[in-house]
């Protein structure tokens, strides 16, 4: 039995053909566009370190930036750098909030591996990562696995 990807010809055929047709249209547009500068003439001047120039542009250190060629025309990105840092921080918080489980209305921390009902000292119930308690969840998953193998695996 093969488990490799295979093309499904059904209700998803039309959107797939649309995506391929979009590539055709965009390729036609690009091939009919005349780019004036040749790539051989483009590029960066010799003898400067691209990596450090990227760092200078990112942190707005224009005094250190090389002025050779067009490298001096690189814009400063300090504000964007700070904004991206804030966005990454917010995404981290959001993912932690989403990963938290709720047990009887009480949020349970995402990183704990053992939890019982509040006030009980029974630690035999080991919480699984999917939010249910051990035995119940495992039977569910096992049942799903069985049905998957019957139908020849997940194919979507």
């Amino acid at each position: 039995m093969t488990t490799g990807p295979r093309l499904r010809l059904g209700e998803s055929l039309l959107p797939g053909v649309l995506a391929v047709a979009l590539f055709g249209v965009m390729a036609l547009v690009v091939l009919n566009t005349s780019f004036t500068t040749q790539m051989a003439d483009a590029g960066y001047p010799e003898g400067i370190s691209i990596t450090s120039e990227i760092g200078y542009a990112m942190l707005d250190l224009t005094a250190l930036q090389s002025t050779e060629g067009n490298v001096g025309n690189t814009e400063p990105f300090l504000a964007a750098f700070i904004l991206i840092a804030v966005v990454l921080d917010a995404a981290l918080d959001a993912s932690l909030v989403l990963a938290k489980r709720e047990s009887e209305g009480q949020p349970v921390a995402a990183l704990t591996s053992v939890s019982g009902s509040p006030g009980s000292t029974d630690s035999s119930q080991v919480a699984t990562t999917d939010g249910g308690f051990g035995d119940e969840a495992e039977t569910d998953v096992a049942r799903e696995d069985a049905s998957d193998t019957e139908t020849g695996g997940e194919d979507r």
Binding site: M39, G43, I54, A57, M58, T74, F77
Partner: peptide
């Protein structure tokens, strides 16, 4: 690379 500056890379 085409324009010779580093804005796109950043």
């Amino acid at each position: 690379f085409y324009h010779g500056n580093l804005t796109g890379q950043v």
